[in-house]
């Protein structure tokens, strides 16, 4: 069971109050992009054992979207942060480094 804190309303709740929204920080490739870019935007996903970044929605609460960083192996939640960003905040990356030295996820580490 994940315990998430919604950065929009401040509520800390268990995962049944939220809804997972898939992988975080995807770059959209739409009409006019190459087939390869479009395919990877649609289908290619990380599948890490360890540090992972996802989008979640506080569906039984304030209704807002946000980002979460967690460990897929232990279900530890490293932190949550607003949806309106293209990358996890530095202090969160530092906090993850303290717990999982040498982690990397796509371009982030």
């Amino acid at each position: 069971m994940l315990i998430l804190t919604c950065p929009c309303c401040g509520v800390t709740g268990e995962e049944t109050e939220f809804h997972a929204g898939g992988e975080a920080h995807l770059k959209r490739f739409g009409p006019g992009s190459t087939d390869d870019d479009f395919e990877s935007y649609l289908f290619m996903r990380e599948n890490p054992k360890g540090v992972h970044f996802e989008r979640w929605r506080h569906v039984y609460g304030c209704g807002k979207w946000f980002h979460a960083a967690r460990c897929t192996m232990t279900l530890e939640v490293f932190g949550t942060y607003p949806a309106q960003t293209l990358a996890p905040p530095q202090e969160l990356c530092d906090a993850i480094s303290a717990k999982r030295p040498g982690w990397s996820w796509r371009a982030f580490s």
């Binding site: 049944t16 039984y60 609460g61």
Partner: peptide
């Protein structure tokens, strides 16, 4: 004040 679910409904 808390918004949440009660059993299966908001």
């Amino acid at each position: 004040f808390r918004r949440t679910r009660m059993a299966q409904v908001p």
